[in-house]
Amino acid sequence: MTLVGVEELRAAQQRIAGVAVRTPLLPCPWAADGTRRLYLKPESLQPTGAFKIRGAHNRLAALTEEERARGVVAQSSGNHAQAVAYAARELGIKAVIVMPDTSPAVKVENTRSFGAEVILVPPGERDTLPAELAERHGYVWVPPYDDPYIIAGQGTVGLELAEDAPDELDTVLVPVSGGGLISGTAAALKLTCPGVRVVGVEPELAADAQASLRTGVHTAWPVADTYRTVADGLRTPSVGTLPFAHLQAYVDDIVTVSEAEIRATVALLARRGRLVAEPSGAVAPAAYFHRAEEIGGRVVAAVVSGGNIEPTLLAELLGTEA
């Protein structure tokens, strides 16, 4: 299986220039504890509120004219949905998005606002209907993570980290779901600054990737189990086939965080970091605050992968003590 390399990562960086935001690497002096320092990479500042625009635009921009004319179909709980819809609008491509009916309303509404047709289905049908629609209507399927163009696009996060990080950076924390973000980011970091450790982070209630990496066996969890976590963007039951190969090649470890820790970190990032993060986006920094012994490191960067949170949930979490 061919892994994404520097050439594909650089090509993606060129394709998405001017569309995806080159997000800053923010020092967080308020999070230092005398022995460790934290930097945050706020992908919540992207035009669609999450990192997914990188991979989606890279995939759609690489389509042929014939493929663009056919339109695209994708499945997502929300952030990939918005990204594909946004990229399709910018490139003049029809987009049909299959979303679970449990998706946050803000993500469904945003996806529709970008001009995509949204089809809501029970969670168990999210990953099967797109193939049927592609077969029936000729759409090009744009998967959320199991695609080299998607992985390369998400990997531009890693290229930017490598270019912007202080020389002392030793650990990077990345959330894990289907594995596109951590695959591309880990590849970029290991291929350009190999001394940096890459540690994935996922909810305890959706820890299929940790089980897969630590056992070496590609493991899936039941949808009913992964859908228990508040981190709705990380409920995918297993990492993709291509992402799993990247995890085995480039990722040092995967740790988990609890629901209480995720919720507390959303509030902490809002109060102290002045950043709005959805629960999925707070998972990586949650490991810095609650899993220090597991992740190690003295100078740590954490990817805040998205900020598309329901206002009512944000208000609820800000009403609790961080």
Results as ranks from 00 to 15, higher is better:
residue 116 A to D: 00
residue 117 E to P: 02
residue 117 E to R: 05
residue 118 V to W: 04
residue 118 V to Q: 05
residue 118 V to Y: 02
residue 118 V to F: 04
residue 119 I to H: 13
residue 119 I to Q: 13
residue 119 I to E: 12
residue 120 L to K: 04
residue 120 L to M: 03
residue 120 L to P: 00
residue 121 V to H: 05
residue 121 V to E: 00
residue 121 V to D: 02
residue 122 P to H: 06
residue 122 P to T: 07
residue 123 P to G: 07
residue 123 P to H: 11
residue 123 P to Y: 08
residue 123 P to N: 14
residue 123 P to C: 11
residue 124 G to W: 15
residue 124 G to T: 15
residue 125 E to T: 04
residue 126 R to P: 01
residue 126 R to L: 07
residue 126 R to Q: 09
residue 127 D to H: 12
residue 127 D to K: 12
residue 127 D to C: 12
residue 128 T to C: 02
residue 128 T to N: 10
residue 128 T to H: 09
residue 128 T to V: 12
residue 130 P to S: 08
residue 130 P to L: 03
residue 131 A to Q: 14
residue 131 A to C: 13
residue 131 A to G: 13
residue 131 A to K: 13
residue 131 A to T: 14
residue 131 A to P: 10
residue 133 L to A: 05
residue 133 L to D: 04
residue 134 A to I: 06
residue 134 A to D: 01
residue 134 A to P: 03
residue 134 A to R: 09
residue 135 E to Q: 15
residue 135 E to C: 13
residue 136 R to Q: 09
residue 136 R to W: 00
residue 136 R to Y: 00
residue 137 H to I: 05
residue 137 H to Q: 12
residue 137 H to M: 10
residue 137 H to R: 13
residue 137 H to K: 13
residue 137 H to V: 08
residue 138 G to S: 11
residue 139 Y to G: 03
residue 139 Y to C: 04
residue 139 Y to F: 10
residue 139 Y to L: 09
residue 139 Y to E: 03
residue 140 V to A: 07
residue 140 V to M: 07
residue 140 V to D: 04
residue 141 W to H: 15
residue 141 W to Q: 15
residue 141 W to G: 14
residue 142 V to E: 02
residue 143 P to Y: 06
residue 144 P to L: 00
residue 144 P to A: 02
residue 144 P to W: 06
residue 145 Y to N: 02
residue 145 Y to H: 11
residue 146 D to Q: 10
residue 146 D to G: 09
residue 148 P to E: 03
residue 148 P to Q: 01
residue 150 I to Y: 09
residue 150 I to P: 03
residue 150 I to Q: 09
residue 150 I to F: 07
residue 151 I to G: 01
residue 151 I to H: 05
residue 152 A to F: 05
residue 152 A to Q: 02
residue 152 A to D: 03
residue 152 A to L: 06
residue 152 A to T: 11
residue 152 A to G: 12
residue 153 G to H: 00
residue 153 G to Y: 03
residue 154 Q to D: 14
residue 154 Q to N: 15
residue 154 Q to P: 09
residue 154 Q to E: 15
residue 155 G to P: 00
residue 156 T to L: 13
residue 156 T to K: 11
residue 156 T to R: 10
residue 156 T to A: 12
residue 156 T to Y: 08
residue 157 V to R: 12
residue 157 V to L: 15
residue 159 L to K: 00
residue 159 L to G: 02
residue 160 E to G: 10
residue 160 E to K: 02
residue 160 E to I: 02
residue 160 E to M: 06
residue 161 L to C: 08
residue 161 L to R: 02
residue 162 A to M: 09
residue 162 A to G: 12
residue 162 A to Q: 06
residue 162 A to V: 12
residue 162 A to T: 11
residue 162 A to Y: 08
residue 162 A to E: 08
residue 163 E to R: 11
residue 163 E to H: 10
residue 163 E to I: 07
residue 164 D to I: 13
residue 164 D to E: 15
residue 165 A to G: 04
residue 165 A to T: 03
residue 166 P to N: 11
residue 166 P to D: 12
residue 166 P to E: 12
residue 167 D to N: 11
residue 167 D to Q: 14
residue 167 D to W: 05
residue 167 D to K: 11
residue 167 D to H: 12
residue 168 E to K: 14
residue 168 E to N: 14
residue 168 E to R: 15
residue 169 L to T: 08
residue 169 L to H: 04
residue 169 L to V: 02
